[in-house]
């Protein structure tokens, strides 16, 4: 399958990318291309020009930023999965980056692309939501910071405007008090999550504080499971409440009813694992 024709420009800097995007109608950012090229091949989307930010090495890094770890938007899943700083300070993020797709996908796909694409079946957005991470977005007016809670707006819809680019993602540093779990249920190991659950909490003397549970493929965006979080904080099994407020799709991986059942099982298991881990 061959994509419809488009023009192609290589961005030399973030400002150059923003200028190139503004130059033409229907322009689109190209990062790792591992969500965009499949869509182009199917001709689901037909941009006039792709602005390739894939060569902006200055946006590929993992850095210590004090209380948080900063990850450049162009950092590839493989590099997020193997970065020593993340393995030390936030192994949750590196573990989940290592579960995205397969090695070939992880060699190309980027964390910024994964977030900006806004696919509710994607793994890293849910982790970012559970961790209350922050995302920097650069546009003609400068850089703004958006909380992960305000970033995901709908299916393939995020806070990133058509002439903006994601530049950095920040996640907190974790301590030995923090427990986490990510359960990705899929039929084959290369598949996307039928349902995914990211669970995260602070543990002290057997109590659970600041619990966060985020769900993959249970609605138009990654979702926080608020009722389950409340149950977990009060020492109850969070599982039975996990489908509250969800609106899962039905597709070849599972019907909506199946997902509503599955999410309860996975939330219980993830909370158990995060309580121990």
């Amino acid at each position: 399958m061959i994509p419809a024709p488009f023009d192609y420009e290589v961005a030399e800097s973030v400002d150059h990318a923003i200028a190139l995007l503004a130059d033409r109608e229907d322009s689109k950012v190209l990062a790792g291309g591992h969500s965009l090229l499949p869509l182009l091949r199917l001709r689901v989307t037909r941009p006039s020009v792709l602005v390739d930010v894939g060569r902006l090495d200055e946006l590929s890094y993992v850095r210590d930023a004090g209380t948080s770890i900063a990850i450049g938007a162009l950092t590839r899943h493989h590099d997020v999965a193997t970065a020593p700083l993340l393995q030390e300070h936030n192994p949750f993020v590196s573990y989940v980056a290592g579960l995205v797709g397969d090695p070939q996908v992880r060699h190309r796909g980027t964390i910024g692309g994964s977030l900006a694409h806004g696919d509710p079946a994607a793994d890293l957005p849910a982790v970012l939501l559970a961790l209350d991470g922050e995302i920097d977005i650069a546009g003609a007016a400068g850089v703004r910071t958006v909380a992960s809670a305000d970033f995901f707006l709908g299916v393939f819809e995020t806070a990133v405007g058509p002439q903006e680019i994601v530049t950095e993602v920040r996640v907190p540093k974790l301590t030995a008090e923090h427990g986490w779990s990510y359960l990705k249920f899929r039929r084959r190991s290369l598949d996307w999550a039928t349902v995914g659950v990211a669970a995260f909490a602070r543990r002290s003397n057997g109590d659970i504080g600041e619990p966060a549970i985020a769900l993959v493929s249970m609605g138009a965006t990654p979702l926080r499971a608020r009722a389950s979080e409340a149950a977990w904080a009060s020492g109850q099994d969070p599982g039975p409440f996990a489908d509250e407020g969800t609106d899962p799709p039905g597709d070849t991986n599972g019907s909506a009813e199946y997902r509503k059942h599955l999410v309860k099982v996975l939330v219980r298991r993830a909370a158990e694992e995060a309580s121990r881990h």
Partner: peptide
């Protein structure tokens, strides 16, 4: 590094 050549544009390999 291993990559899927059906998911990369020739121009990206410059």
């Amino acid at each position: 590094e291993s990559v899927k050549a059906c998911t990369i544009l020739g121009v990206q390999a410059d």
